[in-house]
Design a protein around this nucleic acid. Structure first.
Lengths: 341, 341
DNA sequence: GCCCAGTCTGGGAACGTTCACAGATATACA
DNA sequence: TGTATATCTGTGAACGTTCCCAGACTGGGC
């Protein structure tokens, strides 16, 4: 048996619509694109004809003529495994997609894992396959980000790589969020509070550490801070072990992400410490981890969907030739208090 | 300050390459598409010219002329929230993407949440934006799946909706996997074993239940089976409570997914039962949940990446006009034994 | 009655590619 | 040598759209 698709019927073109409506190509095109100078009679006739012949615009022809792709690239610079696990990235993606599809743009996701991918993506960008890009979690010295600047492609960052200017960015106020939750943790009466930091090559990592430091003020003790490259469960586990060995009397921990907090919880369990009785622990992100943990995590909620939406809007307005603030926008976070502290 | 991109330079076309190489359009096109009847001299000259002028093929023009989109749709029929949380879907996506980008096809993800989306996607498909589709987790009576059959679009299912024929499918052997892990659970000496089933409107849900039943044989007791629509943590929690109330002496549980198992663990914890001492519990998927749970889950591993790859290959071979087995392919699973049973 | 501005419509040309065809050259066989 | 066949190359036409220009018609102001 075979299962090759039956020959699909020829699709209706703008010419079919024009013939059906008794008008010309030009007029049909004007109706489709909502331009001025179309009589009501013509508009009605064209719309009826479109419905009758089942016309759908041929994107390839439009793209060819207008020299645009009507696609926006979403560049995610994370290992594939993290892309799978990190619901924040997924939520950003969904928010972006919602805005773009409203504006008749297609979202193209590009996940960069290895450096080999990085070259491939840079080539892709110069190929004109996308009209603009949204870049998530770029790092310092990111080759893609620099390629985007060089090519002059309309772009927006989610998060802000410290070494690149001239591209608007959307972020959350990591500093304020970290400061607020650390203060809240201190308010529960903790005396020896440490932090498991991460991703210090990115603004998010740096700012969360800075917020933690600001909250502690004079009580800050650099000996109670450990850092690892990845926001991951493994980071939390190793970090917690290290903190416990450095300071067995530790009674509070700010983990730079929920996944790290989850790992830290396992580290505490392993050491026989009770949470929150012996040690209070707080995370960051309010991801799916937070509710899954035992006990559930007190954490900082970030508006991931809004980040994606706003970034998409920034790129679209550049495409429309509008002025875009070159500086960035920081969205506020909120604290979700549960059982872990 | 403004941040509109600088005017991008005109892209090189096939004409530029032809002029640079001192050959014609046609020959350049033949080299690009790897056709026969090109002399070695010409090939070398064209390749050098392409590199020199930095030529990248204009997809829109190609798509217009060939009447193809060179895109494959990945239709995910799940709520957005599940799309974010389910790493199996993510892994399928990555596998699919790997194969498609090798073959110079673009992956377009379409997430169907509401029925409104369903209409939108059906319209999208008839618009010729994709040359083929891969459909994940279709249900019985799925309107999209039926639209695909009606339109004759080359397609492949991941998983098999019970009521649709004529489209090849790739699945895992849910029956064998469920049977094997249930037998393994029984081998630990459990006497009263129940199941929290789910998604009985899909083959995966049905087959896992059937495998469980087959493993138990005469010992099967329908009173020890509960079912809920969603593979989720909530299902596991509610299901475990229900099972405990029906059979307080239950000592083993097969959860139809890891997320359900995680919920069941919380249900057992709530009731003061120890795992695995009092109750042994096993899951299905070997997703990120499995390692996160306390204790870590014994579960069935499914080759999600391979599922995605194989589905992509099935669609591509249909596109090449090759014969495709109309029946499906079931990939084997393996058991990962950890601490929960 | 004339002119100008505003409104509306039609059709040529172009976007960059692939495909089919025709012509040119080389190779093989009788 | 002639003829058939295989290999290689160039060119016109087409894919379906948008943009631009030219022209037709309308109405208002003089």
């Amino acid at each position: 048996m075979m299962a090759t698709g039956a020959a699909r019927p020829r699709r209706a073109t703008i010419h079919d619509v024009a013939a059906e409506a008794g008008l010309s190509r030009g007029t049909v095109s004007r109706v489709i694109n909502g331009e001025r100078y179309v009589s009501d009679d013509a508009r009605v006739a064209v719309e009826a004809a479109i419905a009758k012949v089942g016309y759908v615009r041929n994107t390839a022809a439009r793209n060819l003529k207008t020299q645009q792709s009507h696609a926006i690239g979403l560049i995610v610079h994370e290992p594939h495994s993290l892309f799978l696990e990190d619901p924040v990235i997924g939520a950003i993606l969904l928010g972006t997609n919602a805005i773009l599809s409203e504006a008749d743009y297609q979202l193209v996701s590009l996940v960069i894992d290895s450096d080999r991918d990085s070259d491939r993506v840079a080539e892709y960008l110069s190929g004109g396959f996308v009209d603009g890009v949204i870049i998530i979690s770029a790092r310092s010295g990111d080759p893609i980000a620099h390629a985007v600047v060089r090519l002059g492609i309309p772009a927006a960052f989610v998060g802000h790589p410290p070494d690149i200017d001239g591209i608007p960015f959307i972020g959350i106020d990591n500093f304020a969020g970290a400061k607020a939750i650390t203060e809240r943790l201190l308010a529960t009466g903790r005396r020896r509070v440490g932090m498991i930091a991460s991703a210090l090559d990115r603004d998010s990592g740096q700012d969360r550490l800075a917020g933690f430091r600001a909250a502690l003020g004079d009580a800050f003790d650099s000996n109670l801070v450990v850092d690892y490259p990845l926001y991951s469960h493994g980071t939390g586990l190793s970090g917690m072990r290290e903190l416990l060995s450095r300071a067995p009397d530790i009674d509070g921990v700010f983990a730079a992400s929920d996944s790290i907090a989850a790992g830290a919880l396992d580290g505490l369990r392993e050491a026989g410490r009770r949470v929150p009785d012996d040690v209070g622990i707080v995370g960051f992100d309010d991801s799916a981890w937070a509710l899954r943990c035992q006990p559930t995590l007190s954490t900082v909620r970030q508006p991931a969907d809004a980040l994606g939406r706003l970034a998409a809007e920034r790129v679209l307005s550049q495409l429309r030739g509008e002025q875009v603030p070159e500086s960035g926008t920081l969205l506020p976070t909120s604290i979700v208090w549960r059982d872990s502290a």
